[in-house]
Computed example of a mutant assay.
Amino acid sequence: MYLKTVQLRSFRNYREQRVNFDSQKTIIVGNNAQGKSNLLEAVELLATLKSHRVSRDRDLVLEGAASGQILAALERAYGQAELALILRISGRRTVILNQEPLRRQMDFLGVLNAVQFSSLDLDLVRGAPDARRSWIDTLLIQLEPIYAHILSQYYQVLKQRNALLKKFRQREEDNLNPEIIVEQLPSDISQLKLWDVQLAEAGSRVTRRRARVLERLTPLAQQWHSNISGKTEVLEIKYIPNVSWTEDDPLEVKQAFLEKIEKRRMAEQQLGTTVVGPHRDDIEFIINHTPAKYYGSQGQQRTLVLALKLAELQLIEEVVGEPPLLLLDDVLAELDPNRQNQLLEAIQDRFQTLITTTHLHSFDSGWLKSSQILSVEAGEIRDF
Protein backbone atom coordinates (compact mmCIF):
# COMPACT_ATOMS: atom_id res chain seq x y z
CA MET A 1 0.00 0.00 0.00
CA TYR A 2 1.15 3.53 -0.71
CA LEU A 3 0.00 6.75 0.94
CA LYS A 4 -0.07 9.39 -1.80
CA THR A 5 -1.35 12.49 0.01
CA VAL A 6 -2.39 13.73 3.44
CA GLN A 7 -4.32 16.94 3.98
CA LEU A 8 -4.75 18.44 7.45
CA ARG A 9 -7.27 21.12 8.43
CA SER A 10 -7.30 22.56 11.94
CA PHE A 11 -5.48 19.49 13.21
CA ARG A 12 -3.05 20.02 16.10
CA ASN A 13 -0.89 22.99 15.06
CA TYR A 14 -1.74 22.70 11.34
CA ARG A 15 -4.28 25.18 10.02
CA GLU A 16 -4.26 24.03 6.39
CA GLN A 17 -1.57 21.72 5.07
CA ARG A 18 -1.30 19.28 2.18
CA VAL A 19 1.58 16.83 1.83
CA ASN A 20 2.30 14.84 -1.33
CA PHE A 21 4.46 11.78 -0.79
CA ASP A 22 6.58 11.16 -3.87
CA SER A 23 9.07 8.66 -2.50
CA GLN A 24 8.96 5.33 -0.69
CA LYS A 25 10.90 6.99 2.12
CA THR A 26 10.12 10.42 3.54
CA ILE A 27 12.30 12.11 6.14
CA ILE A 28 10.60 14.92 8.07
CA VAL A 29 13.18 17.13 9.76
CA GLY A 30 12.68 19.99 12.21
CA ASN A 31 13.17 21.15 15.75
CA ASN A 32 11.02 19.84 18.58
CA ALA A 33 7.43 21.10 18.99
CA GLN A 34 7.11 22.20 15.35
CA GLY A 35 4.62 19.54 14.22
CA LYS A 36 6.68 16.55 13.03
CA SER A 37 4.99 14.04 15.35
CA ASN A 38 1.57 15.57 14.61
CA LEU A 39 1.86 14.54 10.96
CA LEU A 40 2.61 10.93 11.91
CA GLU A 41 -0.17 11.01 14.50
CA ALA A 42 -2.63 11.94 11.75
CA VAL A 43 -1.62 8.85 9.75
CA GLU A 44 -1.83 6.71 12.90
CA LEU A 45 -5.40 7.92 13.48
CA LEU A 46 -6.41 6.92 9.95
CA ALA A 47 -5.00 3.44 10.57
CA THR A 48 -6.29 2.73 14.08
CA LEU A 49 -8.70 5.58 14.98
CA LYS A 50 -6.52 5.96 18.08
CA SER A 51 -3.71 8.26 19.15
CA HIS A 52 -1.02 6.87 21.43
CA ARG A 53 -0.43 10.41 22.72
CA VAL A 54 -3.88 11.64 23.85
CA SER A 55 -7.31 10.17 24.52
CA ARG A 56 -9.55 13.21 23.89
CA ASP A 57 -10.39 14.51 20.42
CA ARG A 58 -10.48 18.09 21.72
CA ASP A 59 -6.70 17.81 22.18
CA LEU A 60 -6.32 17.01 18.47
CA VAL A 61 -8.23 20.05 17.18
CA LEU A 62 -6.44 23.35 16.53
CA GLU A 63 -7.04 25.81 19.35
CA GLY A 64 -9.99 28.05 18.55
CA ALA A 65 -11.52 25.65 15.99
CA ALA A 66 -14.62 23.52 16.58
CA SER A 67 -13.42 20.64 14.43
CA GLY A 68 -10.40 19.29 12.60
CA GLN A 69 -10.05 17.09 9.53
CA ILE A 70 -7.59 14.52 8.22
CA LEU A 71 -7.94 13.53 4.57
CA ALA A 72 -5.80 11.06 2.66
CA ALA A 73 -5.48 9.33 -0.71
CA LEU A 74 -4.23 5.75 -0.58
CA GLU A 75 -3.19 3.31 -3.26
CA ARG A 76 -3.65 -0.39 -2.52
CA ALA A 77 -3.31 -3.59 -4.53
CA TYR A 78 -7.09 -3.69 -5.05
CA GLY A 79 -7.41 -0.03 -6.05
CA GLN A 80 -7.56 3.53 -4.78
CA ALA A 81 -9.12 4.69 -1.52
CA GLU A 82 -9.96 8.11 -0.10
CA LEU A 83 -10.18 8.44 3.66
CA ALA A 84 -11.44 11.30 5.79
CA LEU A 85 -11.73 11.66 9.54
CA ILE A 86 -13.53 14.61 11.12
CA LEU A 87 -12.71 15.27 14.78
CA ARG A 88 -14.84 17.59 16.92
CA ILE A 89 -14.14 19.13 20.30
CA SER A 90 -17.51 17.71 21.37
CA GLY A 91 -16.02 14.24 20.87
CA ARG A 92 -18.36 13.18 18.05
CA ARG A 93 -16.47 11.80 15.06
CA THR A 94 -17.32 11.25 11.41
CA VAL A 95 -15.47 8.69 9.27
CA ILE A 96 -15.75 8.88 5.50
CA LEU A 97 -14.52 6.30 2.99
CA ASN A 98 -14.51 7.13 -0.72
CA GLN A 99 -16.70 10.18 0.01
CA GLU A 100 -19.36 8.06 1.76
CA PRO A 101 -19.93 8.64 5.51
CA LEU A 102 -19.84 5.32 7.38
CA ARG A 103 -22.37 4.40 10.04
CA ARG A 104 -19.90 2.12 11.82
CA GLN A 105 -16.36 3.26 12.59
CA MET A 106 -15.30 -0.38 12.45
CA ASP A 107 -15.82 -0.33 8.65
CA PHE A 108 -13.12 2.36 8.40
CA LEU A 109 -10.48 0.18 10.05
CA GLY A 110 -8.23 -2.00 7.93
CA VAL A 111 -8.19 0.31 4.89
CA LEU A 112 -4.87 1.85 5.90
CA ASN A 113 -2.40 -0.27 7.88
CA ALA A 114 0.53 1.28 9.72
CA VAL A 115 3.02 0.45 12.45
CA GLN A 116 4.08 3.31 14.69
CA PHE A 117 7.43 3.26 16.50
CA SER A 118 8.07 6.25 18.75
CA SER A 119 10.35 7.01 21.66
CA LEU A 120 7.34 6.32 23.91
CA ASP A 121 7.43 2.67 22.78
CA LEU A 122 10.80 2.26 24.45
CA ASP A 123 8.87 2.26 27.75
CA LEU A 124 6.86 -0.75 26.57
CA VAL A 125 9.12 -3.12 28.51
CA ARG A 126 9.35 -1.26 31.81
CA GLY A 127 5.96 0.45 31.72
CA ALA A 128 2.68 -0.53 33.36
CA PRO A 129 0.60 -3.47 32.05
CA ASP A 130 -1.95 -1.17 30.41
CA ALA A 131 0.76 -0.03 27.95
CA ARG A 132 1.32 -3.63 26.86
CA ARG A 133 -2.42 -4.30 26.63
CA SER A 134 -2.86 -1.20 24.48
CA TRP A 135 0.02 -2.31 22.25
CA ILE A 136 -1.39 -5.79 21.56
CA ASP A 137 -4.95 -4.44 21.15
CA THR A 138 -3.79 -1.87 18.57
CA LEU A 139 -2.09 -4.62 16.58
CA LEU A 140 -5.18 -6.82 16.77
CA ILE A 141 -7.44 -4.04 15.52
CA GLN A 142 -5.32 -3.75 12.37
CA LEU A 143 -5.27 -7.50 11.78
CA GLU A 144 -8.92 -8.05 12.63
CA PRO A 145 -11.00 -4.83 12.57
CA ILE A 146 -13.98 -6.60 14.24
CA TYR A 147 -11.79 -6.76 17.36
CA ALA A 148 -12.41 -3.03 17.91
CA HIS A 149 -16.10 -3.85 18.36
CA ILE A 150 -15.34 -6.86 20.60
CA LEU A 151 -13.08 -4.77 22.83
CA SER A 152 -15.63 -1.96 23.02
CA GLN A 153 -18.34 -4.44 24.03
CA TYR A 154 -16.14 -5.81 26.79
CA TYR A 155 -15.45 -2.39 28.28
CA GLN A 156 -19.13 -1.44 28.10
CA VAL A 157 -20.01 -4.56 30.11
CA LEU A 158 -17.16 -3.83 32.52
CA LYS A 159 -18.42 -0.27 33.07
CA GLN A 160 -21.98 -1.43 33.84
CA ARG A 161 -20.80 -4.21 36.13
CA ASN A 162 -18.49 -1.85 38.02
CA ALA A 163 -21.38 0.58 38.55
CA LEU A 164 -23.42 -2.21 40.15
CA LEU A 165 -20.52 -3.36 42.33
CA LYS A 166 -19.99 0.21 43.46
CA LYS A 167 -23.65 0.29 44.46
CA PHE A 168 -23.15 -2.89 46.51
CA ARG A 169 -20.15 -1.39 48.25
CA GLN A 170 -22.08 1.78 49.10
CA ARG A 171 -24.85 -0.38 50.57
CA GLU A 172 -22.32 -2.20 52.76
CA GLU A 173 -20.99 1.13 54.03
CA ASP A 174 -24.52 2.32 54.75
CA ASN A 175 -25.22 -0.89 56.68
CA LEU A 176 -22.49 0.10 59.10
CA ASN A 177 -24.41 3.28 59.92
CA PRO A 178 -27.17 2.47 62.45
CA GLU A 179 -29.14 5.55 61.39
CA ILE A 180 -29.63 4.18 57.88
CA ILE A 181 -31.84 1.20 57.09
CA VAL A 182 -30.88 -0.52 53.85
CA GLU A 183 -33.11 -3.16 52.30
CA GLN A 184 -31.66 -6.22 50.62
CA LEU A 185 -32.56 -6.25 46.94
CA PRO A 186 -32.48 -9.75 45.39
CA SER A 187 -33.02 -8.15 41.98
CA ASP A 188 -29.57 -6.56 42.22
CA ILE A 189 -27.99 -9.96 42.83
CA SER A 190 -29.82 -11.36 39.79
CA GLN A 191 -28.67 -8.41 37.73
CA LEU A 192 -25.05 -8.98 38.78
CA LYS A 193 -25.32 -12.62 37.68
CA LEU A 194 -26.44 -11.44 34.25
CA TRP A 195 -23.44 -9.11 34.03
CA ASP A 196 -21.21 -12.03 35.13
CA VAL A 197 -22.30 -14.02 32.08
CA GLN A 198 -21.82 -11.08 29.71
CA LEU A 199 -18.39 -10.32 31.17
CA ALA A 200 -17.36 -13.96 30.70
CA GLU A 201 -18.62 -14.04 27.10
CA ALA A 202 -17.01 -10.77 26.05
CA GLY A 203 -13.85 -11.36 28.08
CA SER A 204 -13.28 -14.81 26.59
CA ARG A 205 -13.39 -13.34 23.08
CA VAL A 206 -10.76 -10.76 24.04
CA THR A 207 -8.35 -13.10 25.82
CA ARG A 208 -8.50 -15.81 23.16
CA ARG A 209 -7.62 -13.33 20.42
CA ARG A 210 -4.78 -11.84 22.42
CA ALA A 211 -3.33 -15.31 22.99
CA ARG A 212 -3.61 -16.21 19.30
CA VAL A 213 -1.92 -13.08 17.99
CA LEU A 214 0.95 -13.40 20.47
CA GLU A 215 1.40 -17.00 19.36
CA ARG A 216 1.85 -15.77 15.77
CA LEU A 217 3.95 -12.74 16.65
CA THR A 218 6.41 -14.43 19.02
CA PRO A 219 8.45 -16.51 16.52
CA LEU A 220 8.77 -13.50 14.22
CA ALA A 221 9.98 -11.30 17.09
CA GLN A 222 12.38 -14.02 18.24
CA GLN A 223 13.97 -14.21 14.78
CA TRP A 224 14.39 -10.44 14.53
CA HIS A 225 15.71 -10.29 18.09
CA SER A 226 18.26 -13.01 17.37
CA ASN A 227 19.48 -11.16 14.26
CA ILE A 228 19.80 -7.79 15.99
CA SER A 229 21.54 -9.20 19.06
CA GLY A 230 23.94 -11.23 16.97
CA LYS A 231 22.39 -14.48 18.24
CA THR A 232 23.71 -13.77 21.76
CA GLU A 233 20.26 -13.46 23.39
CA VAL A 234 17.13 -15.59 23.51
CA LEU A 235 13.75 -13.86 23.71
CA GLU A 236 10.61 -15.32 25.24
CA ILE A 237 7.19 -13.66 25.24
CA LYS A 238 4.65 -14.86 27.78
CA TYR A 239 0.99 -13.95 27.82
CA ILE A 240 -0.24 -13.68 31.41
CA PRO A 241 -4.04 -13.70 31.27
CA ASN A 242 -5.94 -12.70 34.40
CA VAL A 243 -8.14 -15.75 33.81
CA SER A 244 -6.06 -18.87 33.18
CA TRP A 245 -7.16 -21.35 30.52
CA THR A 246 -5.42 -24.04 28.53
CA GLU A 247 -7.59 -24.97 25.55
CA ASP A 248 -8.76 -22.39 22.98
CA ASP A 249 -12.39 -23.43 23.28
CA PRO A 250 -15.08 -20.73 23.77
CA LEU A 251 -17.09 -22.75 26.29
CA GLU A 252 -14.05 -23.79 28.31
CA VAL A 253 -12.67 -20.24 28.49
CA LYS A 254 -16.08 -18.84 29.42
CA GLN A 255 -16.41 -21.44 32.20
CA ALA A 256 -12.96 -20.50 33.52
CA PHE A 257 -14.16 -16.87 33.73
CA LEU A 258 -17.32 -17.77 35.61
CA GLU A 259 -15.42 -19.95 38.09
CA LYS A 260 -12.92 -17.20 38.87
CA ILE A 261 -15.70 -14.60 39.17
CA GLU A 262 -17.37 -16.84 41.77
CA LYS A 263 -14.13 -17.20 43.72
CA ARG A 264 -13.55 -13.45 43.78
CA ARG A 265 -17.15 -12.40 44.35
CA MET A 266 -16.70 -11.28 47.97
CA ALA A 267 -13.52 -9.38 47.14
CA GLU A 268 -15.22 -7.59 44.25
CA GLN A 269 -18.17 -6.52 46.38
CA GLN A 270 -15.85 -5.24 49.10
CA LEU A 271 -13.68 -3.33 46.61
CA GLY A 272 -16.62 -2.14 44.51
CA THR A 273 -14.89 -3.02 41.24
CA THR A 274 -14.30 -5.93 38.86
CA VAL A 275 -11.03 -7.75 39.50
CA VAL A 276 -11.55 -10.57 36.99
CA GLY A 277 -11.02 -10.13 33.26
CA PRO A 278 -8.63 -9.15 30.45
CA HIS A 279 -8.48 -5.55 31.68
CA ARG A 280 -5.97 -7.04 34.16
CA ASP A 281 -3.94 -9.08 31.66
CA ASP A 282 -0.21 -8.60 31.19
CA ILE A 283 2.56 -9.66 28.80
CA GLU A 284 6.03 -10.58 30.02
CA PHE A 285 9.22 -10.27 27.98
CA ILE A 286 12.10 -12.51 29.04
CA ILE A 287 15.69 -12.28 27.76
CA ASN A 288 18.02 -15.20 28.50
CA HIS A 289 15.58 -16.50 31.14
CA THR A 290 15.55 -13.11 32.94
CA PRO A 291 12.53 -10.75 33.01
CA ALA A 292 13.49 -7.81 30.80
CA LYS A 293 11.28 -5.46 32.84
CA TYR A 294 13.51 -5.67 35.89
CA TYR A 295 16.92 -6.74 34.66
CA GLY A 296 17.27 -5.83 30.98
CA SER A 297 19.80 -3.12 30.14
CA GLN A 298 18.67 -0.11 28.11
CA GLY A 299 20.36 -1.64 25.06
CA GLN A 300 18.56 -4.95 25.56
CA GLN A 301 15.23 -3.20 25.98
CA ARG A 302 15.74 -1.19 22.79
CA THR A 303 16.67 -4.33 20.90
CA LEU A 304 13.52 -5.99 22.21
CA VAL A 305 11.18 -3.16 21.20
CA LEU A 306 12.82 -2.88 17.77
CA ALA A 307 12.31 -6.64 17.27
CA LEU A 308 8.64 -6.32 18.28
CA LYS A 309 8.04 -3.51 15.79
CA LEU A 310 9.73 -5.36 12.93
CA ALA A 311 7.67 -8.44 13.81
CA GLU A 312 4.48 -6.33 13.71
CA LEU A 313 5.37 -5.14 10.20
CA GLN A 314 6.00 -8.70 9.05
CA LEU A 315 2.82 -10.11 10.60
CA ILE A 316 0.56 -7.38 9.17
CA GLU A 317 2.11 -7.93 5.73
CA GLU A 318 1.47 -11.69 5.99
CA VAL A 319 -2.14 -11.26 7.11
CA VAL A 320 -3.34 -8.41 4.86
CA GLY A 321 -1.19 -9.34 1.86
CA GLU A 322 0.48 -5.93 1.54
CA PRO A 323 3.28 -4.20 3.44
CA PRO A 324 1.95 -1.61 5.92
CA LEU A 325 3.31 1.88 6.38
CA LEU A 326 6.08 2.37 8.94
CA LEU A 327 5.96 5.52 11.08
CA LEU A 328 9.24 6.21 12.90
CA ASP A 329 8.81 9.10 15.30
CA ASP A 330 12.18 10.37 16.52
CA VAL A 331 13.53 6.92 17.42
CA LEU A 332 16.83 6.85 15.52
CA ALA A 333 18.44 9.10 18.13
CA GLU A 334 17.45 6.54 20.77
CA LEU A 335 19.22 3.68 18.96
CA ASP A 336 22.95 3.05 18.77
CA PRO A 337 24.57 2.86 15.28
CA ASN A 338 24.26 -0.96 15.11
CA ARG A 339 20.51 -0.90 15.83
CA GLN A 340 20.02 2.06 13.49
CA ASN A 341 21.65 0.09 10.68
CA GLN A 342 19.59 -3.03 11.47
CA LEU A 343 16.40 -0.98 11.26
CA LEU A 344 17.31 0.94 8.10
CA GLU A 345 18.49 -2.25 6.35
CA ALA A 346 15.26 -4.03 7.28
CA ILE A 347 13.20 -1.20 5.78
CA GLN A 348 15.04 -0.64 2.47
CA ASP A 349 12.22 -0.07 -0.05
CA ARG A 350 9.97 -2.79 1.35
CA PHE A 351 7.76 -0.45 3.43
CA GLN A 352 6.68 3.10 2.76
CA THR A 353 8.34 4.87 5.68
CA LEU A 354 7.80 8.27 7.28
CA ILE A 355 10.65 9.23 9.61
CA THR A 356 10.83 12.28 11.86
CA THR A 357 14.18 13.56 13.07
CA THR A 358 15.80 16.72 14.41
CA HIS A 359 18.91 16.21 12.22
CA LEU A 360 19.99 14.23 9.19
CA HIS A 361 23.38 12.89 10.25
CA SER A 362 21.90 9.50 11.27
CA PHE A 363 21.32 8.68 7.58
CA ASP A 364 23.95 7.64 5.08
CA SER A 365 24.21 9.36 1.72
CA GLY A 366 22.37 6.55 -0.07
CA TRP A 367 19.35 6.93 2.19
CA LEU A 368 19.32 10.70 1.81
CA LYS A 369 19.53 10.50 -1.98
CA SER A 370 16.66 8.00 -2.21
CA SER A 371 14.39 9.85 0.26
CA GLN A 372 12.00 12.75 0.01
CA ILE A 373 13.08 15.27 2.65
CA LEU A 374 10.60 17.72 4.15
CA SER A 375 11.15 20.39 6.78
CA VAL A 376 8.62 21.43 9.42
CA GLU A 377 8.52 24.77 11.22
CA ALA A 378 5.58 26.11 13.24
CA GLY A 379 3.00 23.91 11.51
CA GLU A 380 4.28 24.61 7.99
CA ILE A 381 5.75 21.78 5.87
CA ARG A 382 8.06 22.59 2.96
CA ASP A 383 10.60 20.82 0.77
CA PHE A 384 13.96 20.74 2.52
Results as ranks from 00 to 15, higher is better:
317 E>D: 12
371 S>G: 08
72 A>G: 06
41 E>R: 03
56 R>Q: 15
365 S>F: 02
26 T>L: 03
368 L>E: 12
83 L>H: 10
148 A>E: 15
2 Y>I: 10
283 I>M: 02
266 M>R: 15
135 W>I: 00
47 A>Q: 01
237 I>N: 12
333 A>D: 13
131 A>L: 12
286 I>Q: 03
278 P>S: 08
312 E>N: 08
134 S>R: 14
320 V>Q: 09
200 A>E: 08
292 A>V: 09
230 G>P: 13
185 L>H: 06
375 S>I: 10
148 A>H: 15
59 D>C: 01
213 V>W: 03
126 R>M: 13
267 A>I: 07
319 V>Y: 12
307 A>I: 01
357 T>S: 03
162 N>W: 06
326 L>M: 07
127 G>R: 10
368 L>P: 05
61 V>W: 02
242 N>F: 15
47 A>G: 01
141 I>S: 07
256 A>C: 08
337 P>Q: 04
248 D>M: 11
77 A>W: 09
130 D>P: 00
161 R>S: 01
245 W>I: 07
383 D>A: 14
359 H>L: 07
349 D>K: 06
196 D>R: 01
59 D>S: 05
142 Q>D: 11
349 D>A: 11
87 L>C: 12
8 L>G: 02
144 E>K: 09
376 V>W: 10
128 A>K: 03
173 E>V: 10
142 Q>F: 15
380 E>V: 15
5 T>E: 15
316 I>G: 07
100 E>D: 13
35 G>T: 09
232 T>I: 05
150 I>N: 07
120 L>E: 14
140 L>S: 15
244 S>L: 05
37 S>L: 02
41 E>N: 05
198 Q>V: 03
378 A>M: 12
143 L>W: 14
103 R>N: 13
55 S>Q: 12
359 H>W: 13
181 I>M: 08
270 Q>C: 04
236 E>Y: 08
211 A>S: 11
256 A>K: 04
274 T>M: 09
185 L>V: 13
281 D>C: 02
39 L>F: 15
47 A>D: 04
294 Y>K: 10
181 I>W: 01
249 D>P: 01
49 L>G: 06
216 R>D: 13
153 Q>Y: 06
123 D>G: 09
21 F>R: 03
